[in-house]
Structures are given as C-alpha cells and as structure tokens.
Design a binder for these strands. Structure first.
Lengths: 122, 122
DNA sequence: TGAATGTATGAGCAGATACTCAGATATACA
DNA sequence: TGTATATCTGAGTATCTGCTCATACATTCA
C-alpha cells in the first residue's frame, strides 16, 4: 500500500514547489475561499469602502466584517486609512485582483448557464 | 451604523457578480485552500497518479487522500480511470492549472526571500 | 475460489472557523 | 466635557472540516 510507482513519486516530489511556497499558496487561496471574504474583496476591487458599507453589502453584522477585515489585513490583502471616524478599506495591491479575476473567469465557465439564456419560444 | 454611503453601496451591488457566480468562485478557491488538496492538485498537474502514490507524496493516509479526492471529483476538478486495481487520477481540465499557476505566481511574490539568498560572507 | 492488493466509505472525534454579543476604543461635534 | 457615530476586539458558541479507524468493495492472480 506504500507507493506503487516510486519513480513517479520521486519525479513529483522533485517537481513540487517548496513547502513554504505551498503554504503561501494555500493562504492566498484561503483568503478568497469564504463567502463573506470573497464579497468583501470583490467589492473593494470595485471601489474603496468603509466597514459599515461592507457590512451592508455582505449582509452580515459590522462585527463579522471587522473580524474578516482583520484577517485580510494580517495577510496584506487590504489596507485602510482613517477618514474621520470611518475606516476606508482598499485592495492592497494587484495580486488579489488577478487571482479573483482568474478564479471568476473559471467559475463562469464551470457554471451551468441554464438561467442565462431565455427558453426557446414555442 | 447602517450604510453610510448609500450611493457607493448601490454601485457596488450593481457591479458585483451574481450570487451563484460568487458561490462557484468560493468553491473553486476552497478546493485549493487546503494543504492536502493543494498538494494533490499540484502533483496531478505534474503527472497522473494513483491514490497510494498521492498518499505518499502528501504524507497522509490513503484514506485521507481518498476522502479529499472524492471532494475534488465532486467538484469536477479531477477525473480517474481504473488501471487494474489502481485508480489513476488526473486533472480534469485546464481551469485548475491556470488557477494554481496564478496563485503560485503571486505566492512567490508575497513570500519573503530570506532563505533563498546565501548569507553574506564575513 | 481464496488470498492479496488497492481503493472507497461511514462513523466518530479533535481542532478550526465564522458568527453574535457585549463592551472597549477612537473620532467628531455640540 | 458629554454624546453620538464608527470601528475594534475578546469571549462564547454552533458549525464545519479533515483526520483516523474500521470495514466494505473491487480487481488480480495463484
């Protein structure tokens, strides 16, 4: 039950990215792998927003958004500046834009398009 | 505490992808947002592999790999064919290749390169 | 057919996680 | 200074998730 094809295993192990790189990849993917965080990031791609506007858009409490923004801040995916009593959040750089765009493009193709086309006239 | 800038909220809501699309995006991202699944997919990008080879490469039990493969199968990210008593898994299509490549590229840039360069001679 | 090999699957559990609630903090303004 | 507004944060909780274990299923070969 151990490896059946030792050569294949050796080739793949040699070809895989280094461990910290895989970890970084998982972290980046994980940032967009939650519904609230995905909505936050997709929204901030469109324009900069304060916390309560994000809460309204995401349909969750301000506290929930704030917790998720903290996570996104810690991973350097968003930045914020204070504007009076508000905190205005922005996408940190173009990395996530690209990743979101790529994922979105493939999500579109993987989706059944039943609802998009009008049913044929009888 | 409700929305502060109603116009911004309206603009963003109009600009966001439809709900099922966001869900599909989250699902795709989630597939690569786990360490074992990421290793499985990265390995299968290199070459087709059977379950026990994947277990060896990922450093987890055959059962754990099989459970994750089931998830990846359900999301149409991998396919398999039987070869005798083995099940040989492959990447289903180029979608995930692209997504992995994109994420990996940005993971590289987000990673501190401390360990890559040799320390200066004294 | 029976034994060995490779894979799949259900149950159960420990850890992770995403939310709410309550309260703290920060800023603006009367 | 006191009040209102906007945000942050810790604690608690329900749910999710990824693993192991045991076992069932499938295929090969003697």
């Amino acid at each position: 039950m151990d490896a059946v094809d030792a050569n294949a295993v050796a080739r793949v192990n040699a070809g895989l990215p280094a461990e910290p790189l895989i970890k970084a990849l998982v972290d980046i993917q994980d940032a967009t792998a939650d519904h609230t965080r995905a909505r936050i990031l997709l929204s901030l791609v469109i324009e900069k927003l304060c916390v309560c506007d994000l809460a309204s858009i995401c349909g969750v409490s301000q506290s929930a958004v704030s917790h998720q923004l903290r996570l996104l801040r810690d991973r350097n995916l968003v930045t914020f500046t204070r504007d009076g009593r508000r905190a205005v959040y922005r996408i940190a750089d173009d990395h996530i834009r690209t990743i979101l765009a790529t994922a979105l493009e493939h999500a579109e193709e993987s989706l059944p398009c039943v609802d998009i086309l009008a049913p044929p006239r009888v």
